[in-house]
Amino acid sequence: MQLQLLINQQQKNVDVEPDMPLLWVLRDHLGLTGTKYGCGMAQCGACTVHLDGSPVRSCVLPAQAAVGKSITTIEGLNSSTGKAVQKAWDDLNVVQCGFCQSGQIMAAAALLEQKPNPTDADIDNAMSGNICRCATYVRIRAGIHRAATLRVNTTISAEGLV
């Protein structure tokens, strides 16, 4: 069926089966391969994208359900929060294999939009749906705290994130 989806602020028309999850529309039909398949049942979080700003597992979200909403993937993560998370990740050398990190970054950015200064307990709650088999959790946690600081600093600096 024909669907019109708003992805990374662009309207995209796709012709897919009605039950196809958003993940496979993104990956196989639109070439947005930054969002990963890890489990197919919302257990690992590698497929996390934002739907109207909230983190969702795109592997179990039928693409149809995203019609009329704003979808953001790692490729379109242009918010100052998103940039702060990416910079914090780079600063702290968070990644190892990197396969989960698109999902981690999307989940972390969504957390920081909701809770600009999250506690460790907030991080446990928001991030425990995202598996990292390299177990970079120590640095993901540090990265979220750092991004929270970077974010505050950007709002007071006209220079942005440097």
């Binding site: 930054g34 990963k36 993937t73 490729e75 050398n93 990644v95 990197g98 990190q101």
Partner: peptide, 17 residues
């Protein structure tokens, strides 16, 4: 800084991609 770049912006290519 690590040199296996592209892993924080979705551009790194894995076999899946």
């Amino acid at each position: 800084p690590r040199k296996d770049t592209g892993k924080t912006d979705g551009t790194a290519i894995f076999t899946q991609d």
